[in-house]
Nucleic acid binder design. Sequence first.
DNA 1: GAAGAAAAATGACTCAGAGTCAAATAATGA
DNA 2: TCATTATTTGACTCTGAGTCATTTTTCTTC
Lengths: 241, 241
Amino acid sequence: MSVAKTRKDREKAEREELIITHAGRLLVRDGYQNLNLDALAEAVEYSKGTLYLHFKTKEDLVLAVATRALRERADLFERATRFKGKSRERIRAIGFACCQFALLHRDYFSIEMTLKSVSFWEKASEEQRRQHGVQSGRVFHAVNSIVQEAVLSGDLPKDVKPQDVVLSLISITIGSHIAATQPELQMLCAVENPIVAVRRNQDLIIDGWGWKPLLKDWDYTATDRRIKAEIFPEASWLKSS
Amino acid sequence: MSVAKTRKDREKAEREELIITHAGRLLVRDGYQNLNLDALAEAVEYSKGTLYLHFKTKEDLVLAVATRALRERADLFERATRFKGKSRERIRAIGFACCQFALLHRDYFSIEMTLKSVSFWEKASEEQRRQHGVQSGRVFHAVNSIVQEAVLSGDLPKDVKPQDVVLSLISITIGSHIAATQPELQMLCAVENPIVAVRRNQDLIIDGWGWKPLLKDWDYTATDRRIKAEIFPEASWLKSS
DNA sequence: GAAGAAAAATGACTCAGAGTCAAATAATGA
DNA sequence: TCATTATTTGACTCTGAGTCATTTTTCTTC
């Protein structure tokens, strides 16, 4: 019986994965508004009723899609924290992870944006909310631990509050992603490669805090090569210029 | 007849304003999803059909709400450009305008976020899209002109591209607004006052570009007092600390 | 100021799509 | 094989965006 139960559980989990995958695909293609649960039911070859056995509402489902992506983000960030080096090199590894994630999930931010809208969260289940919280916590912690290390080691001025640094890093990352992927702004600001823009902005903020060694005082292209070789060998986007 | 026509036009414009005002109020209260056009029709005491004489779709209406707020933002930014002083003081006046706007329209960004969702724009009318473009252009230009001046005067290094600076300023502003108003992040990062967080992040980016005089080399609290006195006497939020 | 024409306003209606639930189907066990 | 329990289904309800034939108001002319 216990075996039967695990098999059933496994089947249920697999189906949930299937639904989330297809939902993510349709979400990217059509947007939240135009995500049609009848169409999704057809795509996964289950009935609409079955979808509702897995997810309380459409919002619940979309939150699950976002959480799965966020989990991958957290995984990449935690891998990045394993990089050995100066604190600023280590925060750069996080930035690297960020790029890697952006390339794997080009549209994650647009999904995350729909989560921010009023009365979205209250329509999702307690459990989904909790899971999303856990994953954001992992992301926050990965960044925070490196910032704290930098303060302790003196690479950041002793009097800065780690939380303020983390907030500024999160802000510039979110904002740069949104701004650099806006067609209108890409035009006005001559953005060729959004990833490059995000990284430059991250560097600016980090320099702004006086996080040593400053950009001008260190060869970070060498650091990037090490990060790629040691932590993210699968990253194919880094130009060897 | 010409008089009759202008009177009619005026009445139409007034009603449009009424609709936009109420729509904005409901939008903030209920969010885009829950904005109900039957309820809005009741609130403005016109029929639903009449709403549709003014706006092609719900999206069109929401875009009009966003554009009206954006116009006010552009007005504040243009007022800020009239401030006399060093280029860094002048960009600070823009930051000041930004705060002023954030206080007048605490929830503008959440509306602007709904505009970013896939397939929103295509449902709005050509004319609304154009108007929104005009207003963003004004905002962009206000910032860009000061950045260019800074490069010419040597306050910013000669080799920086003004567009890159503008992009970074827009990014940090959008991102900080989103991050600093997220309840979860407010908790984790101990954000007491979102406005303070936004301004600090702006300062960091500006310092990051090496825009002289740097934060540590100049008394910007005095500048803030001048900005308030000379340009934004109505601003009541600036603590005289 | 009445009558007829043109313009504006209305709200009952259609239609799409989220969410439900009684009935059908499948799995389990005796 | 049949009864019982668990799972799956899709026809149905209900909400709300968008439409348009009809009604109401405004304008014009005599």
